[in-house]
Amino acid sequence: MIKVLFVCVHNSARSQMAEAFLNDLGKDYFIAESAGLEPGTINPLIVKVMAEVGYDLSQNDTNSVFDYYKEGRLYSYIIKVCDLENGQRCPVFPLARNVLDWNFEDPAAFTGTEEEKLEKARHLRYKIRENVTDLINTYKDSI
């Protein structure tokens, strides 16, 4: 199994979505966790759009990437789903074979009406799922 850590700023949206998708769609090949640089609370917009496609994130906790680092957790892949600038703050995990930068916009910064924000969140959901599917197809044969 390939162990993956998804990292974003607050572990409240992007990393949670990616973790859910990879643990479901890639369950035969991958084990995913997620964490944040400054853990916050789960974004209600993301809870809503993930529920639309059958994923319940409403009871998820947020985790600290630095706590995982201090615990000595090991990962084959670290995938930063935050913007490039914040991704540079992520600690270097020993023995991680690869670090990927996916660079998604933070849903906390979405503006507009509630429906406009939901549409942006749905688009983000689609893009993250697409990246996760590509990851599975690319790396599953390296097991």
Rank of each mutant, 00 (worst) to 15 (best):
G40D: 10
N86K: 07
L74Y: 05
Y29F: 15
T41H: 15
I46E: 02
G87D: 00
L25P: 13
A35H: 08
K27H: 14
E116G: 01
Y126M: 14
E114M: 06
R129L: 10
Q88F: 14
Y69N: 11
Y68C: 10
V47A: 14
R89K: 14
T41Q: 14
R125H: 01
D101P: 06
D24K: 06
C82G: 13
G54H: 02
E119V: 08
F110C: 06
L135D: 00
R73E: 13
Q59V: 05
V132F: 15
L124W: 04
V81S: 00
D61K: 11
F21M: 12
G112Q: 07
T62R: 02
D134V: 01
Q88K: 09
Y77I: 06
K27V: 10
N131Y: 10
L45Y: 01
T111A: 00
F110H: 08
G54V: 06
H123A: 09
V47F: 07
K70F: 07
E85K: 05
L118T: 05
E119Y: 01
P107I: 06
N60Y: 12
D56W: 04
A121R: 00
Y69T: 10
V49Y: 04
M50F: 03
G40I: 08
F30Y: 03
K120A: 14
V99A: 04
I42P: 04
E71N: 14
L95Y: 07
H123E: 01
D61F: 14
I42R: 12
A51Y: 12
K48Y: 00
G112W: 13
Q59C: 02
D61T: 08
F66H: 08
A109R: 09
Y126P: 09
N86A: 04
D28S: 11
L135M: 08
V49Q: 04
T62M: 03
N43Y: 03
G87E: 01
G54W: 02
E38R: 12
V47I: 15
Y29R: 09
A35Q: 04
R97M: 15
G40M: 13
E119L: 11
Y126W: 07
G87R: 03
V65A: 04
E38L: 11
L124F: 08
E130Y: 14
V65H: 10
E52N: 00
R73D: 05
E114P: 05
D28V: 12
G112H: 11
Y29T: 11
D134K: 13
F21C: 14
T113C: 01
I42M: 13
L84G: 03
I46Y: 04
L84C: 02
E130G: 10
A96V: 02
L118C: 04
A32H: 06
R122M: 08
T41P: 01
K48V: 00
P44E: 11
I128L: 15
T133G: 05
L74N: 12
E38M: 09
I31K: 02
K70D: 13
F66K: 06
E115N: 10
R73C: 06
G40Q: 06
V132M: 13
G72E: 11
V99N: 03
Y77A: 03
G26P: 07
D134R: 12
E52Y: 00
D61P: 07
V81K: 00
N23A: 09
F93S: 01
A32D: 04
E130P: 14
G112R: 09
K70M: 04
P39W: 07
I78Y: 03
